[in-house]
Each structure stands twice: as structure tokens, then as C-alpha cells.
């Protein structure tokens, strides 16, 4: 959670060292109402657009609220019990999980590879940073327009490349066995640049004397990578993996757009948010969709708390 911001205010180092604020009673900060005015704008927005929907959503999950009908009535736990017995909920949760499993390793490994390569190249660094990171700045619809076109059977470039090397064509987005893989490949291309930047920053933060000492001991590049670089990147890797986990749980945009909102054949590419969207906005059932939202929320909180525990347990430095 804690962002390891490496931007420090001027002379911060001097200020941080003496007496932590809580230690000595500082009488200058008398409690006053002034601060309240400062937090008020944010608090109002926070209350209206986060707390209200949170609470309203919880209430709605116990009603049969629908977009297609005025008013609603209390139905108790009906939505919740329907949800637990709804195979589509579990299938879509599985799709989200599967996506996480197939997209995370390449998103970490390729990013690391890119960072190691870029780190060593001095001249064309800006070009490498541009080509690896630029896709991350594309709006999702641009990404899916391009990749839907690349995946096209018949005249798409991906299949063209496959055929050029003698492989058979693949119906990337219309075959239920490949649609999620296709979306994962697109996602890797699109977002790996962010992880690449994190690795790059971490690599550049490794002090030179570490390597110089190693050079004196005469270690070869592989040993240097294996025994110095990699351990020093450990924290960054953990960070990237956890960021990636939470990001994957929120899969929706590219999956929705690349399957034209249909979730792919047999819903093979409809993630849990896709099912929330379908139930609530396509199926009009706001109450039911609210219940599923809470299920997803529970999953995300559990994952976040687990990772938080792992983090605060490992690197106290934060």
C-alpha cells in the first residue's frame, strides 16, 4: 500500500531525524476547528460519492430494485442466496482468476527483461522507454480497436504472421479456448510498460558501489544478476505482483470491448465485473448486481489485506 515515493522535499533528511512528532508533546498544534474547513470539500465528495453508494449498495442488495421498475421492496437475503447458487457468478469469478494466472507471470518477467535491457543501454534509452511505455498511455478503446484488427481471421496481422511461419490460423476472439489468452496478450502489451518503469527505477536506485565491490571479487555478469541484482529487486517484484493481482481482479474494459460486450463464446471471457455489469445494466437488476458487487468487494478486501500483511511484515522500511 505505502507508496515508496522517492521524491523528497528539500532538506527533508534533516527534518526527519530528530524527535518523531508523537514523542514530544508539541503545544503549538492546539486543537482548533480551522482544519475542518480544509478537509470539508474532500469529506463532502467522499461522503457523497463513496460512503453513500457503499451504504446504499448494501441496502439495495436486500431489495429487488430494478432499472425497469419504479420503487422496490425488501426481499431479505434472496439476492444473496441466489448469488451463491448462480453458476454464472462462479464462472465469471473463475474467468477473472484465470486471467490473473495467465497474465501476471508475463507482466512481471517481460517487464523485468525490458528494464534490464534498457538499464544497460545508454544511447537510445528514450526510444526504449517510449516504445515500452507508450502503449500504457493509450486509451483502452484504442488498444482494443488495434488488437481486434490484429486478431482478425483471414486478413489480420497475427494470423498472417502465424501462417507465414507455417502455423494454422487461430480464431483468437471467437474460440472459447483462446479468447481469454488473446485478451491477456493484449493486456500484457498494453500495461507491461508500467511495471517496466518500476523495475527501471529500482535498478537505477542500486548504488554503483555494490557492483564495483562485486567487480573486484571477479564475479561474472550472470552471478552478478543472480546474487546482487535480483535480491535487491525483491521488494519491487513483490510490489509489482501485488499491484498486478489487484489490477487483474478489476478486469473489465478490454474484455468487454474485445468481445463486443458479449463476454466471448460461452462467456469464456466475461470477468466478474462483466457479470455485475450484465446483471445490473443489461438485466436491469440493480439489487442483484449490488449483491455481487459486495462479493467482489469482499474478495478484493481479503486479497488487499493479505498483501498488506505480507508487505508490512517484510519490509519495515516502507
Amino acid at each position: 500500500m505505502t507508496p515508496s515515493t522517492d521524491i523528497a522535499p528539500p532538506e527533508a533528511a534533516r527534518a526527519v531525524s530528530p524527535a518523531p512528532p508523537g514523542g514530544r508533546a508539541r503545544t503549538r498544534h492546539v486543537s482548533s476547528w480551522a482544519g475542518l474547513w480544509f478537509v470539508l470539500p474532500f469529506t463532502v465528495l467522499f461522503a457523497v460519492f463513496l460512503v453513500w453508494p457503499m451504504l446504499a449498495g448494501l441496502w439495495t442488495s436486500f431489495t429487488d430494485r430494478s432499472l425497469g421498475r419504479a420503487g422496490s421492496s425488501f426481499v431479505g437475503l434472496a439476492n444473496w442466496s441466489e448469488m451463491l447458487g448462480d453458476p454464472a457468478v462462479w464462472q465469471s469469478l473463475w474467468v477473472t482468476l484465470l486471467f490473473t494466472l495467465i497474465s501476471t507471470p508475463p507482466l512481471v518477467l517481460i517487464a523485468l527483461g525490458m528494464a534490464l535491457l534498457t538499464h544497460r543501454v545508454s544511447r537510445l534509452g528514450w526510444f526504449l522507454r517510449f516504445s515500452f511505455f507508450a502503449p500504457f498511455l493509450l486509451p483502452v478503446a484504442v488498444v482494443t480497436l488495434i488488437w481486434t484488427w490484429l486478431y482478425q481471421p483471414g486478413f489480420g496481422m497475427v494470423n498472417g504472421a502465424l501462417q507465414a511461419v507455417g502455423l494454422p490460423e487461430v480464431n483468437w476472439l471467437t474460440d472459447k479456448d483462446t479468447v481469454l489468452v488473446a485478451i491477456a496478450i493484449t493486456t500484457v502489451w498494453w500495461t507491461v510498460g508500467f511495471n517496466f518503469l518500476l523495475y527501471l527505477a529500482a535498478l537505477q536506485g542500486i548504488p554503483a558501489y555494490v557492483y564495483e565491490a562485486a567487480a573486484l571479487d571477479g564475479v561474472n555478469p550472470w552471478q552478478r544478476f543472480r546474487h546482487i541484482t535480483l535480491p535487491l529487486l525483491h521488494r519491487t517484484t513483490a510490489l509489482i505482483v501485488t499491484l498486478q493481482l489487484v489490477a487483474s481482479l478489476k478486469l473489465f474494459d478490454q474484455a468487454y470491448l474485445m468481445t463486443a460486450g458479449a463476454g466471448g463464446p460461452d462467456y469464456a471471457a466475461r470477468p466478474i465485473i462483466g457479470y455485475i455489469f450484465d446483471s445490473g445494466f443489461t438485466g436491469l437488476r440493480i439489487g442483484y448486481a449490488s449483491a455481487i458487487s459486495y462479493l467482489l468487494f469482499a474478495v478484493i478486501v481479503v486479497v488487499s489485506l493479505v498483501q498488506f500483511r505480507l508487505f508490512s511484515g517484510k519490509g519495515k522500511s516502507a
Binding site: M54, A56, G57, T60, R65, F277
Partner: peptide, 20 residues
């Protein structure tokens, strides 16, 4: 409370927020 708010991803609020 605000720290706890960090835990709430906007994605889980889409349905109640639209309703609101």
C-alpha cells in the same frame, strides 16, 4: 476513514453509484 476508503475500488461501486 479515508485510509479505509483506499480499499474500496471504484469498480465495485458502479451499480449503486449509477443508481444514486
Amino acid at each position: 476513514l479515508f485510509l479505509a476508503g483506499i480499499l474500496v475500488p471504484p469498480q465495485v461501486l458502479i451499480v449503486p453509484l449509477f443508481d444514486e
